[in-house]
């Protein structure tokens, strides 16, 4: 499993992407991340909620309470207009970083 501090700076983008696809709640997001990466990366819930707080404060996402299920009410997150713009920018930036890093990382094993 990958070191979590290596991926830390990109957590916002990962979570924004998942919320961009559809409104999701916390546990669903952590399951989705584990499933998509074949369990190669698992986010700690504590980290996840900290990211939610941060994104919400920056007004990149919004939350609302969903229907009652399993005896509790799920809190869903929804991307905002600002969040979409931010995600688009982050993706552009990521492609740039990837290209630059590949110049130095490719070819050696």
């Amino acid at each position: 499993m990958i070191r979590s501090d290596a991926i830390r700076g990109h957590l916002d983008a990962i979570i924004l992407r998942l919320i961009y696809e559809e409104d999701r709640y916390g546990y669903e997001i952590s399951k989705e991340i584990a499933a998509r990466t074949n369990e190669r990366f698992q986010i700690k819930e504590a980290t996840l909620y900290a990211v939610f707080q941060r994104l919400e404060r920056k007004e990149l996402i919004e939350s609302y309470l969903g229907d009652v299920s399993h005896g509790g009410q799920r809190r869903y997150y929804k991307i905002t207009k600002l969040g979409r713009a931010y995600l688009r920018e982050t993706i552009e930036e990521w492609n740039e970083i990837k290209d630059i890093m590949n110049i130095f990382m490719e070819g050696l094993t």
Partner: peptide, 10 residues
């Protein structure tokens, strides 16, 4: 409340 709900589901 959110964390309790999510943990219970897990």
């Amino acid at each position: 409340a959110e964390i309790v709900q999510n943990l219970e589901e897990k």
